[in-house]
């Protein structure tokens, strides 16, 4: 249910836009930006189980 194979056509552009949107933000505003983004994307996914699986995966992914 959690699609983790590559699904974006232009991953570099999307990644850059993510970073760019936060470049001039202070840490609190950047955090708030990311929270809004998560909510927008969760709704766009439109599948409760997939969102819950993504939360679990993000929590479980090892840190470097």
């Amino acid at each position: 249910m959690l699609a983790t194979e590559p699904r974006l056509e232009r991953p570099d552009d999307v990644y850059e836009a993510l970073i760019e949107a936060q470049r001039d933000l202070n840490p609190a505003d950047a955090e708030r930006f990311r929270a809004r983004l998560i909510l927008l994307l969760a709704n766009r996914v439109g599948d409760d189980e997939a969102v819950l699986a993504a939360i679990a995966e993000a929590a479980a992914s090892p840190r470097g």
Partner: peptide
């Protein structure tokens, strides 16, 4: 606190956020 504010940021313009 963070997500509460993010939800309120979105709720005026977006119906989906009102559900939160």
């Amino acid at each position: 606190a963070l997500f509460r504010e993010a939800v309120l940021d979105l709720a005026e313009r977006h119906a989906f956020a009102r559900a939160f």
